[in-house]
Amino acid sequence: MDILVWLIPAALALGLIGLAAFLYALRSGQFEDLDGAAARILFDDDTPGKKGPR
């Protein structure tokens, strides 16, 4: 049972890292436009903003 001393904190720490990542993503607005994010991935930036032909 000694192994629990390691396994449980490790499991919890991993879970907490996931939760922190979720809260960070939420705070930085990554859940604001789920439809757009799904569509954006289909477009490659072959006309990079500032260098594009005018």
């Binding site: 954006r40 477009f43 006309t47």
Partner: peptide, 12 residues
């Protein structure tokens, strides 16, 4: 998605 792309690229 294409509309989003068009509007953004045209403005950029």
């Amino acid at each position: 998605g294409a509309c989003v792309w068009l509007v953004e690229q045209a403005l950029m």
